[in-house]
Amino acid sequence: MKKTSRRRFFAGLMAIAAWPTVRAYGQASTESVDAMVLTVTGGAKVQTGRVKLELPPFADNGNSVSLKVNVESAMTANDYVKSIHLYAARNPRPNVANFYLGPRAGRAQISTRVRLGGSQRVLALAALSDGSFWSATADVVVTLSACYDAT
C-alpha cells in the first residue's frame, strides 16, 4: 500500500464517517501491515482480484463485524488456495487471522466475525499454490454506541 492509496483512504473516510471513532481498547498500531504482508509474500507481487471480501459498509458495533472472504480457484490438487490472511490496519494488532486450507477444502471461502478498532479499510490476502498472491479490500464505518455503559 503506497502513500497515495492511504491518502485516498482517509479522504474517503472523512467523506462518509458521520460517527468516526477510535475504540476504547487502544490506539491504532504502528506496526505496518505492509511489513506483515511482506513476510507472507517474500516480496512477490500482490495482484488485485480473484479475492472477494465482504463486510457490512456500516458496522453496528466494532466488537463484532461479520466478514466473508472468497477466493476464485479451481481447488484441485494442482491449483488451490494455500492460505488467506486478514489485516485491519487500525487495530492494535493488525493481523486479525490467518487461515490455511488446501485442495480438500473444495471451496476457498471463510466466514467469521472480527473486531474493528474504528472505521477502516480491511485487507484480505490470498496465497495460491502457483506462487501468486491476490488481494481485496473493503471499507467499513464503525458506529459508536449512543449510551455510555459502565457495566
Binding site: N61, S64, D149, A150, T151
Partner: peptide, 20 residues
C-alpha cells in the same frame, strides 16, 4: 449484546441504562 461481547441479564441491561 455486541457491546458487552457476552450474554447478559435483564438486570445488567437496567444497570447499563442507569449508567447511561
Amino acid at each position: 449484546r455486541l457491546e458487552w461481547q457476552t450474554m447478559g441479564s435483564l438486570h445488567r441491561r437496567f444497570r447499563s441504562c442507569q449508567s447511561g
